Amino acid sequence: MINPGLSRYEVVLDNKYFLRDLVESITLEESLDEIAYRATVRLVVTPDFPGITPGQEIRVSGIPFGGTEMVYLLHPGVVWEVESESHGQKHITVTIYDKTIYLAKSEDEYILPAGQTASQRIERYAADWNIPLGNIADTGIPLVRAVYRAQSIYSMMMADLKETATKGGGLYRPRMTPYGLELVQLGSNETVWVLESGQNVESLVQRRTLEGTVTAVKVLGTAKKARTEIDTSGMTLEEIGRLYGSEEDREDLPSPVLAIEYGENDKYGTLQKVIQDSKIETVAQAIEAARKALTGMQETLTVTAIDINTIRAGDKVSLDGWELLVTSVKHDLGSPGHMTLELASEDYVRRRYYYD
């Protein structure tokens, strides 16, 4: 075996070539910024090496932390990129993605009726693209009519999930599993791993910044809402005439202000965000959206620890008694391996990843 520390792991190509004895290193990486789980596997090439090329099926398995039986860690996967180098001995670095990568790289267009939930729309996308489904959580929030022109399937999914979050729903993430595409709520993992400084945590970096802080939010209406929601009391008859005239006539009128909300502007100064979203249909929705967009000082943590190889982006962990969500994870597999986690509060995740 090239790396004895990887004896608890297996890489299987095309469901028949077991490459464990050729593996030099394996890393697994995932982030809330992307949909697909990524593995990077470095292999040594021997005379009996079967050959490997992009498009082949591949999987990574391992014995979970504290377990005894091997489970799938990345499956189903696809070989996405192969890079070879020779320094006497030939080596290959293989980049692997789980098959949600096709949702990020494939484009289509949809016109979807109002009243559907994000869950129902994901079922529609999956049916059209012949994607097997596992457990799809019920998001429960009816969405407005959507017109999605040429864009990736993943961007449509995220637009649906962001609308769900902005309307007070939960935070959800698509995830590929051996059972098919699933929709999971962030922080819903059954096992919440406990990380403790001075125990299994090797290093902890805390970052605090005003970058991304929002202390004032103005929500503007669209031209369509202008005729019904703008205050015309201070307008001239000519301006009112243009307001009720054509779209071209209304172009030089200010957008109607549906809501203005303030946060910690006395403490941090005024850092204003403007929201103009056709999906916001009432003043009450505008006020709610404004309040949710207010943010204080931004705080994230980076943790390096003994590897717990089943932790995924979106999972909840406990750090020194503080429950946080994993925004990104990198597993350097081994015995023991090491992991690097980016952690943040649920409020931060909602604002950073689910509010445009």
Rank of each mutant, 00 (worst) to 15 (best):
L13M: 00
S7D: 10
V11G: 04
I52T: 07
N189M: 04
M1P: 14
G140Y: 04
G67I: 10
G337Q: 03
T302A: 09
E83G: 12
S246E: 09
A226C: 09
E261H: 08
D14W: 05
E323F: 10
L143H: 06
W193R: 15
K224N: 15
V78F: 03
L204M: 08
N309R: 04
M157G: 03
I230T: 11
L294R: 09
P4I: 02
W193T: 13
P336Q: 11
T213D: 11
P113M: 13
M1I: 12
V317Q: 01
E57G: 14
G198Y: 00
G314T: 04
A259F: 01
V79T: 00
R121F: 10
G140M: 04
A289Y: 01
V60M: 03
L301T: 11
G170I: 05
S106A: 01
Y244N: 14
T270Q: 08
Y354F: 15
G170S: 08
T300Y: 00
T340D: 12
A118F: 03
S318L: 07
T302P: 12
G115P: 11
L324N: 00
D249A: 11
N135V: 15
Y172P: 04
R312H: 06
I122N: 02
G241S: 08
E196F: 00
S119Y: 01
L186Q: 01
Y348F: 06
A293D: 07
D249N: 14
R208A: 10
E10A: 13
L103I: 01
V11W: 03
D320H: 10
L19I: 05
E239D: 09
V144P: 15
Q120I: 12
S203K: 04
E342S: 03
A36C: 10
V192C: 06
G198L: 00
T177Q: 03
V79N: 00
E247R: 12
T100H: 07
A305P: 09
N130D: 13
K267C: 10
T68I: 12
S246D: 08
E123M: 09
Y353L: 14
Y154R: 07
E238M: 04
I287W: 01
K90A: 14
